[in-house]
Structures are given as structure tokens and as C-alpha cells.
Amino acid sequence: MKLTGKGTLGLAATAAVVTGTLAGVWAGSHGAETPSRGSEVVLAQADDVLPSVTSTDWVTYADRVVVVRPTSDREIPATEEENEAGEGYIGRSATLAVDKVLWSRSGAPAVPRSLTLDVAGWAFKDDQRQEFAVHDTPRLETGHTYIVALARLDDGTWSILGSGASLPYDGGVIGNGESEGNTVEAAKPASKSVSAARTAPGTSHDVEDSVEDSVEAQVNGESDDALVSLLNDTAPAPDAS
């Protein structure tokens, strides 16, 4: 699967959408005046370029599914316009160690052992800052392990397929770890209701009816073997462009 343009998938697309509306998001949040770890995270809905929720989405649009560990991250400064306005979005890029390849599309390019990707950063207003996350989606933080579905773009860079394409994977259990900036357990997964907001723009693919069929729901609490079996048993969408 070849896709044109750098940063057209996953959080890059989401951040572009929410940057212009963070004032409303901030007003609707309930974090402390001086946010700290454990204060409420600013959440936004995703506006994914491609569907990324079901196993059909993954095997149709992803090139590789891998286990990764964030090893470091850095801030991406807000724009001059946002700084002048006193509110906006501070980006973040994370370096991810690729520990294991779980699934590959036939003919997929080799994935490097280390990737640097744009991930969720922070919303800010004046001198306040709060962690930013997409609903039901990990922020990808150091100290945790994740499973992600990746697509390589035409310019050779890699991107997470979309907001449904990353799963917590601490301790070898899918659903254990970090999601939305909080620690979650497989027995108490993040709410699936928000997944209904994930719709690929320009398509008729509304995942509201496929939440129960999501990758997350089907392999929650399992090891990566269950995910590999699921993907191997799934056929790509026949009408994908």
C-alpha cells in the first residue's frame, strides 16, 4: 500500500484538525489550573485519512504490524501564530525501538529497527499546559510497550495507520499499559464508545457498526499470538483503492 505525502496519516492529520479548535476543547476540559501527571488529559476525536479500527482495515492499508518501545521524545514548538494567540498545540516526536515484527503485507518494505514518529503532545493556554490525546488511543510514552500498525508513505517515511492502529502492550498483554495518558488494564479497557467517532473522510466507512469487531475488542487481554492469528485469518477489503 503506497500513500502520498508525509504526515498524512495518524496523529499528524488529527493534530491539524484540532489545532484550530483547541480553545473549545480546553474550555470543555476539567483539568487542574496547574496540570500535573494524573490531571485530566485534553481529548479530541480523530479525523483519520484511512480506516484503522478493524482487522480488515489493518491488513488492507498497513504494511507492517510491530511491537515498539518509545525510547525518547522531544517537543515540537507551537507555531508563531499560536504563541501570539496564547493558546494552541505543542507537538511531540518519539523515537520508537522496533522490538518485533508481528505481521507483514506481502511485498512490504523492511521496517527499520528504530522509527521517529509524530505522536500526541500537549494543548496549552497561556502558561497552562495539559497532555493531549486522541480518544481511546495511546499517547506512546516512554516506559511502555505498544503494538502499532504502520504504513510507509511514498517519500519513504513511516506513519501509524490511524487512531485505531496502536494498542497498549505492557507485560506481553494486549490492553495493558498506557492509553489516553492513563494506565489501563486489559480487564478494564478504555471505552469503546468513542471509537464510533472514527470515520475516514471521503468514504462511507463509519466504524460505529464495527466497534465490536475492532482489533482492540477482539484481542484484548491476549498475547500477540492472538493478534497474529487474527490478521492471518483476515482478507483485505476487495474494493480498497
Rank of each mutant, 00 (worst) to 15 (best):
T199F: 07
G175A: 00
N176P: 01
S204N: 13
K125D: 11
V184C: 04
L153N: 11
L102H: 09
R113K: 13
T199A: 14
A151R: 07
A123K: 05
S229A: 15
W158M: 08
L150C: 05
S191D: 14
L115H: 04
D225S: 12
V148Y: 04
V211Y: 00
L140W: 11
D209L: 03
D224G: 01
Q218I: 03
R105C: 07
V184A: 07
D118N: 10
A190K: 10
P201G: 10
A197Y: 13
D206F: 10
A217K: 06
D118H: 06
S159G: 09
D225T: 13
N232E: 15
V101R: 08
A197I: 02
I174P: 00
Q218N: 04
L227K: 01
Q128V: 08
W158G: 04
V228F: 08
A217S: 12
R113V: 10
A165H: 02
G164L: 03
A133N: 11
S114V: 11
A190Q: 09
G143T: 07
T116V: 14
N182S: 09
T157D: 13
S166M: 08
V111S: 11
K125V: 11
S159C: 06
V219D: 03
S104M: 03
A151N: 03
A190W: 08
V148A: 15
T145K: 00
E212G: 15
E131Y: 11
S195A: 12
D118V: 12
V184Y: 15
G143L: 05
E222P: 02
G177Q: 01
S106V: 14
A123V: 14
E180G: 05
D118L: 11
N176W: 02
K192T: 14
S159N: 13
D136H: 12
E208R: 13
A165L: 02
A108C: 08
D170G: 01
E208W: 06
R198K: 10
T157G: 11
A196Y: 08
E212K: 11
V184E: 09
E208G: 10
G175R: 00
D206H: 10
D126Q: 13
S179R: 14
L231Y: 05
Y169C: 06
S193F: 11
A226P: 01
V111T: 14
